[in-house]
């Protein structure tokens, strides 16, 4: 028995394509407590979204969970029957997707689609359903909800549709909201509105959020805890301050150096090389071909996790090397 709300242990998800097995998520473990905001950052193809889909059990072929466990409230989700899962999905764990334009059905009105979610997960009937829809639309800041509920998705702007998506996800006041790049498709001023809304609702409802994004600005703004993913593995985790001010993995350091500074115009220091080919992951550390500090051992063996504080840990040989250097074992 654990007292974490969500516990992911050694999760492995692979896609079996003709060219071979793509290990999209490879041995990922983390926990999420009540009221926490966890950020998952990484480049495209690092396995952030697949992690989310694996938690929700909404992977489609050829994707498959090949190992590990996902425990929500001490219930195992991996291998649970569809009928049982349906009681958790949407009711206890909700997800909002990146592109609100393609996530809604274009031939039903927005109100109709929210009604459906309410009917599916609550005991409300008849007029009450409609009332709840209007109530929830008001809550997410949609003006004139009576009229808007009768409109179709194409009549909404991107920011408004994302509000509708959030409304739908919040119908049952879930314990966990997974937001998969919720603001990537939106403009900055609209992004600020949506972030403000999510922050407000999170405080009011006390839910936990898993925020998946590639935008380091967004995680700096929202998250208590951050984990950095690379090639399907979590390479570093820590509090927002630990990650931004005292990163311990060479990839995290490189990532932070490649964003333009707000203060000066110093030349950017990019990470060299190309994004990883998941079909062809190097034997040792997956980041080694792009790492400037790459050592012999990095090519041969995956680095062990090194714990720096109660919250921060990283898997990078450099840390081990530095320690040995400090103690005089190597030069």
């Amino acid at each position: 028995m654990s007292n974490h709300l969500l516990e992911v242990n050694n999760l492995k998800t692979s896609f079996f394509i003709p060219a071979g097995e793509v290990k999209a998520v490879d041995d990922v473990s983390f926990t999420l407590d009540k009221g926490e905001v966890l950020g998952i950052v990484g480049e495209s193809g690092s396995g952030k979204s697949v992690t989310a889909y694996s938690i929700m059990q909404i992977l489609s072929k050829p994707g498959e969970i090949v190992g590990g466990s996902v425990k929500f409230d001490n219930q195992e989700l991996v291998g649970m029957s569809e009928a049982q899962l349906r009681k958790i999905r949407g009711a206890k764990i909700s997800i909002i997707f990146q592109d609100p334009m393609t996530s809604l059905n274009p031939v039903y009105t927005v109100g109709n689609q929210i009604d459906e979610a309410i009917k599916l997960h609550t005991n409300l009937k008849g007029d009450q359903v409609h009332k709840k829809t209007i109530e929830i639309l008001t809550q997410v800041g949609v003006n004139d909800p009576e009229k808007r509920a009768k409109q179709y998705p194409f009549e909404f702007s991107g920011g408004m549709l994302q509000r509708v998506m959030i409304a739908m996800a919040l119908v049952c006041e879930p314990d966990i909201l997974i937001a998969d790049e919720p603001t990537t498709a939106l403009d900055v001023t609209i992004q600020a509105q949506i972030m403000e809304l999510m922050r407000e609702l999170q405080k009011k409802l006390g839910m936990s959020i898993i925020l998946i994004t590639h935008d380091l600005g967004v995680v700096a703004d929202m998250c208590d805890k951050i984990q950095v993913m690379y090639a399907g593995k979590i390479v570093e985790r820590g509090t927002a301050k630990e990650i931004f001010y005292n990163p311990k993995h060479e990839y995290t350091k490189g990532l932070l150096k490649s964003i333009p500074s707000t203060q000066n115009k110093k030349k950017l220091i990019p990470i060299q090389g190309n994004p990883i080919d998941l079909l062809n992951i190097p034997k040792g550390c997956a980041f080694s071909p792009r790492c400037e500090q790459c050592m012999k051992i990095c090519l041969e063996q995956y680095p062990a996790v090194k714990v720096f504080s109660e919250t921060q840990q990283a898997s990078c040989w450099m840390n081990v090397f530095k320690e040995l250097k400090g103690s005089g074992t190597v030069e």
Binding site: S157, V188, T189, A192, G217, D221, F244, T262
Partner: peptide, 27 residues
Amino acid sequence: KSLLSAVPIPDPNTMMEKKRIVLEGDI
């Protein structure tokens, strides 16, 4: 002003102090 204040800065301390002008509505 509001466009600049809406930009999330990759720096948790700055973000905590940042005053934001949240624009209402869409373009």
